[in-house]
């Protein structure tokens, strides 16, 4: 197994499947009378969050606590970070505190890579800038697998602000590793220059792609993009790239609708679609805990062993 989880590209096919298989067993423990496992007793997991993301932080926190790790939440607000302490100094502090793993969410792309150079412990990327969010991709893959039985050969369409989306980057990489065919649909302004090197097909036409999709993943459109001429108006975006009831009907019967949340209902996804039985949005949240338990167990369970050092 790898030492840190910084990018979905760090995971080879065997490692990725090991995480997903392990997550199935972790999910099974959630239905037991005692949900807590002793596996990471005595280990310290720090949630180092430089961005507000209550849902991601809670998911990691729940995962760590289910495995009996001690969890320290270190958020930029109300800590020395807001007084200008550098990431490196923070890393040295966490090191001195004996953090076995640091889960980092940061507005700058690549911050987890820097942290990993300054810490002995395991670093888990919980979303860095517009780069990646590998555990989100893992939980998305887990959800696809549990709903559709496989990932290999699935046609996955990712729709929206690919340019700024860490979810899209991680999903493209992981899904390619696991043998899915990814199509990116977005206005050309929201696709990065250089996207042609990604293992994915690009389309500007959502209606043409939907009938050939097993999975449609809608990306959140950030408020700040709406005023920066990436598209003329919310209304036009919604009309051209939003998933409404009519478009839902164009999907094959078995197809599922995913969204990493939080949603802009009525913008990229219609409320009726978000709440439809084909939507996996709620499952994605509960699957998130299982997948993060699996990641922590696999990265941290054996840390300190000769095999992993």
């Amino acid at each position: 197994m790898i030492r840190h989880l910084l990018s979905a590209a760090d995971l080879g096919r065997d490692d990725a499947l090991l995480v997903l298989d392990t997550a199935i067993e972790m999910a099974a423990t959630a239905s037991r009378s005692v949900k807590k496992l002793p596996t990471l007793r005595g280990r310290t997991v720090v949630n180092l969050f430089y961005e507000d993301s209550t849902r991601t932080r809670i998911s990691f926190e729940a995962a760590a606590k289910r495995l009996s790790a001690d969890v320290i939440n270190f958020s930029a607000k109300g800590s020395s970070v807001s007084k200008g302490e550098s990431l490196k100094d923070t890393a040295l502090t966490l090191q001195a505190m004996g953090a076995d793993a640091v889960v980092i969410r940061h507005p700058e792309s690549g911050a987890p890579y820097r942290l990993a150079q300054w810490l002995d412990g395991v670093v888990i990327n919980a979303g860095d800038g517009t780069h990646e969010h590998p555990t989100q991709a893992l939980l998305d893959a887990y959800t696809m697998r549990s709903r559709l039985g496989r990932i290999d050969g699935l046609r996955v369409t990712i729709v929206g602000d690919v340019l700024h989306s860490r979810v899209a980057r991680s999903n493209v990489l992981l899904l390619d590793t696991l043998g899915a065919e990814v199509t990116l649909v977005a206005p050309p302004t929201l696709l990065p220059v250089g996207v042609e090197a990604w293992p994915a097909t690009v389309s500007y036409d959502l209606d043409a792609v939907l009938p050939k999709s097993d999975v449609v993943m809608m990306l959140r459109v950030q408020r700040e993009r709406m005023n920066d001429s990436y598209f003329p108006t919310q209304r036009e975006y919604s009309r051209r790239y939003g998933l409404d009831v009519r478009r839902l009907g164009a999907l094959p019967e078995h197809a599922i609708v995913m969204h990493p949340g939080p949603m802009n209902r009525g913008m990229e996804i219609a409320p009726q679609v978000a709440d439809s039985p084909r939507s996996t949005i709620v499952e994605q949240v509960s699957n998130g805990v299982s997948v993060r338990m699996a990641v922590m167990y696999l990265l941290l369970g054996g840390s300190g062993s000769k095999e992993n050092s």
Binding site: S109, G110, G129, T130, H131, P192, V193, G194, A197
Partner: peptide
């Protein structure tokens, strides 16, 4: 802008300097 705009910036999620 953070780095040259191209294949690498797309991969690294860094704003491109075209």
């Amino acid at each position: 802008a953070q780095m040259n705009e191209g294949v690498q910036s797309a991969r690294l999620g860094l704003t491109g300097w075209p």
